[in-house]
Design a protein around this nucleic acid. Sequence first.
DNA 1: GGCTTTA
DNA 2: TAAAGCCAACGCTCA
DNA 3: TGAGCG
Length: 322
Amino acid sequence: MTGGGIVASANGEAKPLTLSNTDKIFWPQQGYTKGDLLMYYAAMAPVLLPHLRGYPLVLVRYPDGIEGKFFYQKQAPDHRPSWLPTVTIPSSGSDGTAGEGKKSASSGRAITYCMVNDEADLLWLINAGCIEVHPWLSMAADPDKPTAMVFDLDPAPGQDFRVVIEVALCLQAALKTLGLKGYVKTSGASGLHLFVPIAPLYPYAVVREAAVVLAQMIAEVDSRVTLERHVEERGQRLYLDCWQMARAKTLASVYSVRPVPGATVSTPLLAEELSGENLLDPRQFTIKNLPDRVAQVGDLFAPVLQEKNDLRPLLSLTGAQG
DNA sequence: GGCTTTA
DNA sequence: TAAAGCCAACGCTCA
DNA sequence: TGAGCG
């Protein structure tokens, strides 16, 4: 793939897009280029775009590849094309935590976030060196109400991936007793993400606190699991992180590429991949094989777009107000 | 990656 | 003219 | 009050 102008079109609107430096090496060990990254995202656009539409995005940009300097970008750059969709959101509101009477005023300036509706939007971000795409957990239209309850299963360095899988299964079983269904994907790095899709009915703090109660129950019965936020205190335990559920916090999106050797991808898993005999290797899913996998198994995260779990049984269990 | 600011 | 800078920052927990 | 966390 070489550079040059292309014109994508959506709804009859022309979106001129010029790709640059497509031969630049982004993954030195594998020799993968920015062009490979662009081709991956272009191939995945049909399944990826529905998961991104309507969400404010935080970009993690590596313009010189995974071994170069990187930076997070929230504010959409001024030189973006005029056709790129954006949303402007005040950077601080309440996160729904009870403590009224305190600050919670709009302390920060508003931030204009990038969004993506179509392939041209997505590829413009990727061409800018954005390897990871981090959507908010709430939509631009309702930025204080998350659309999923999310658990981030983060193993200690060197911890057996089998433990991560067992904790995910345990969580799923606990959710099932509450009538809830969770969907699991690899983080693309060493852990797993478990998504419980919900309607945007509750503020972040309510969903988070419900998740924490559930997570504490897991940690109580499994000594390999901790909710400890301080790294040293965790020891060799798996960190069950519920803290991404807060306004303006993000997680690598489903099908997002990760800036690690091998160009791994956050990949939804089949039930049998979680429970099967042979141990899953989360590094097996990469920009080179994901399009084929999706052609075979489809978008295993598609239900996340449709299902709205009813949190009320969990909320009543935790004593929260619904 | 691309723009602006500084040396 | 070239190099260097800039591009996040929420809100909580524990000490 | 501030350092650490993701």
